[in-house]
Amino acid sequence: MKQKNKRLLVLTLSLILFATGSVIILTNLRDNLIFFYSPSEVMEKKIKPNQTIRLGGMVKEESLQKKVINIDGRSLEEISFIVTDFNEEIKIYYIGILPDLFKEGQGVVVEGIVENNGIFNAKYVLAKHDENYMPPEINDIESIKDRRNDI
């Protein structure tokens, strides 16, 4: 019985030590573990120009614009929209195909570089899905907002 208690003690102590170590490492690595920065964090951090970062937030309502531009004689559709965390806003420019679930008022993660003039040039745009699942019939804005407020 004594041997058992000893093993249990050693086990508990080493697990506590190991867990504490992991917590310290994980808290210090936060900047490397997060998948994207919020607009506020980008503004705070003074991101260097031409550094690739990921930015995530909500696509601001009625901010999506599409216009045709000419680059090297080819006409391309340039998409621009504003990503917001309801505190700071950053305008995104993107040439390419948007994912199907990209929508105003929905979450989005963009990867790209902030250029010298403060413009965010996106290379990739990913739609971020939230945790709400519901049938199409009750898809009126109010019910979605109610659900969000509940959480």
Partner: peptide, 11 residues
Amino acid sequence: DWWNTLHQPAS
């Protein structure tokens, strides 16, 4: 919950 992820939080 701890970090920003592309994966959505638990429903």
